[in-house]
Design a protein around this nucleic acid. Structure first.
Lengths: 218, 218
DNA sequence: GCAAATAAAATACAGTTGTCTATACACCTG
DNA sequence: CAGGTGTATAGACAACTGTATTTTATTTGC
């Protein structure tokens, strides 16, 4: 989307940048963990980790909020791609729900720290911060909504309020994922199972509501 | 639960405390808002707001984490009471779901800032911090579970995995509530409606799953 | 009144933060 | 080579942080 000023350095005068936006993002990711959230990062800390002077940070980002938004977008794109792959992979082997839940939790366990960001930092931080997180979530909802419609047609089953159904599933899964971050790994399997049942519940519910609507349209 | 050292001052020597735990909690609440979360509060700031010297804070709390846990517990108890009232009030007038959702959103709008804490701070902060939030959520789940069982018996409808159903509803409602905090007030009605439909979806789902289980026990 | 006890305040310290200013560096073009 | 240009650094500043130590204030029992 946004071309970094350092990616295309065609014949411009001046000293070459020794560091790129991506390097700073990578440094910020290195600092994150179960006890460190993006909103607790300091400019100096990130600069230190990236091996640059504090002031050099400003060459790449206006402020920490801009870094945070970049991280959120990155996390969203990354996770969407993984879930997308899981979706296609699952249609043949296991159920879609199970496949996506597994992929989700696998990613959680792998912990490239991107997922952490998306899961828990949407509720804190500045307005720009929250807006970016909401936007990424809405992307998920949209993709899921289309998938639900496709699935309902295929199975010839009802689907009450596709958008709301997608939203419910997305929010619930993310909320459950956020709690998983605080849990030891040996509880993850149990939690994955819980997520699967919950999602099945919502799907069964949307089908039931659709059925009762056609039967009782008043 | 825990008696404050200042609440019962029977014949002890020494200077009387000019400020109580509750005063500090109130000061902290005053500082919170849509842009300030508990985890961003500083000890000095709270002490300043409470009108005491920074060090005096330690007389009442070991550290900010202890304050945060107190705030979370307070928020949980407060909200549970309100939801409890809504539950009883709703059984006669409207549906239980609608009544509770309304009460929830009313409380959100009223913004005594307690709800904000519970909604969004469970995902950030120290381990003690998160644990306190999880505990409060589990209280909600438990109350809701009992209610669901009662309701299912009354209406003679099925109920697949009561605990999971309660957990799904709780987490989903809280997640939706958290997003409501970032929304302007004129969107709250729409969001309340969404929550109601979502909850109905889950309830319909748990009933459908229960029905399919009795039909197909294999 | 006096000593003990408790609470609060005053002072101080080392650390960190964001940002400003000035300066050194590396690179391209002429 | 010089000149310009964009990048990165160094140093400094005021503000803030949590906390340790010391001092003051206020209350009680004798």
């Amino acid at each position: 989307m946004s071309d970094t000023p350092s990616s295309v350095q065609l014949g411009l005068p001046g000293r070459k940048p020794v560091i790129s936006r991506e390097d700073i993002i990578a440094a910020a990711l290195k600092l994150l963990g179960p006890t460190r959230s993006v909103s607790t990062l300091s400019l100096r800390e990130v600069a230190r980790e990236a091996g640059i002077a504090p002031n050099s940070f400003y060459r790449h980002f206006r402020d920490l909020d801009e870094l945070a938004v970049a991280l959120i977008d990155l996390a969203g794109e990354s996770l969407r791609q993984i879930i997308g792959e899981a979706r296609q992979r699952a249609t043949s082997k296991h159920s879609v729900v199970q496949g996506c839940a597994d992929a989700f939790m696998d990613q959680l366990r792998a912990d490239d720290r991107l997922l952490h960001i998306l899961l828990r930092e949407g509720t804190v931080g500045s307005a720009a911060f929250k807006h970016a997180a909401e936007r990424q979530l809405s992307f998920f909802e949209d993709e899921l909504r289309l998938d639900l419609i496709r699935l309902a047609k295929m199975k010839n089953s009802g689907l009450h309020e596709p958008a709301l159904t997608a939203k419910a599933i997305t929010r619930l899964v993310f909320a459950m994922g956020a709690t998983a971050l605080n849990l030891p790994e040996d509880k993850h399997a149990e939690l994955t199972e819980q997520i699967v049942v919950m999602v099945r519940m919502i799907i069964a519910g949307t089908q039931a509501l659709a059925a009762s609507k056609t039967k009782n349209p008043a």
